[in-house]
Amino acid sequence: MMLSRVADSIYWMSRYIERAENIARYINVNLSLMLDQQPDGQNQWDALIQITGDHAAFKAKHGAATLASVTNFLAFDRDHPNSIFSCVRAARENARTVREAISSEMWEYLNRLYLKVRDRAAAKDLFQIEEGSQFFTEIRLAGNLFDGITDNTMTHNEGWHFCRLGRMLERADKTSRLLDVKYFLLLPSLSDIGTPYDELQWSALLRSSSAYEMYRKRHGRITPDKVVAFLVLDHEFPRAMLYCIARAQESLHNITGTPLGTFANTAEQQLGSLRSQLAFSSAKDIIRSGLHEFIDEFQTTLNEVDASIFQNFFEIRTVQD
């Protein structure tokens, strides 16, 4: 039992940090990919903007996608609600309203992180390649550190489960976007399939999910269907979509006390059927019927789950006597 407002803030605090981490992952992988770019390669910065789903806002503001414009937009733009800076700020603002519900270590870490990102965002100079990937590596690490601090300092009570629920739903969404962009935007150059460049892209994709080594251990050679199998359907890899959905579902059922396999509200129903769908799919089926369509539907379902969570747990309704 906890305040609806507090649960809401914890859930979003966690989502925003995960989001910031994933944006840093996207940028990081693009920076390294850029260095391997073929001279006639397509504009991968444009692809990056596509992943985030903020293409329209970006275009209106910057027009052409370049290293500097995309990086500054995604990392430091204070008016862009999904920039790293905005996400860290929002995570910290949410944490500030629930300081009494989280551990002081969580708050203090998030506050320090905010101060650091704010200072970088306030610096006048735009991001240039010479700055290197260190900042984004730090943000990636920050997400992991925050998760670790959360797991080790906060009682695994209802608040913690809302935290994990938010983190896992956000991560599932972000992994799906990453996969989508490779498949949908980079793949169409059919002549590249099976070339060293194709493998380079798949490796970069795996690396941005911290999945490269784990994939190698599991499947060895890099092939598109195996990558899909790994990032969508793996039970054990912590950034795989199925893994995330399974953990989110566990947390949701921990919050309500409803036994797994049954449901007592729409959020449980939607998440349960999504998990079953993933658990009983194969990569070949998914690719045959269209990976992009599959991912699109997946993201739509996640949005519905999010709306149901809001209605079931956070929304303030008038009390009838």
Partner: peptide, 11 residues
Amino acid sequence: SFLAQQMGVEL
């Protein structure tokens, strides 16, 4: 928020 946290009660 500090006092609520230190006492372990809801704010």
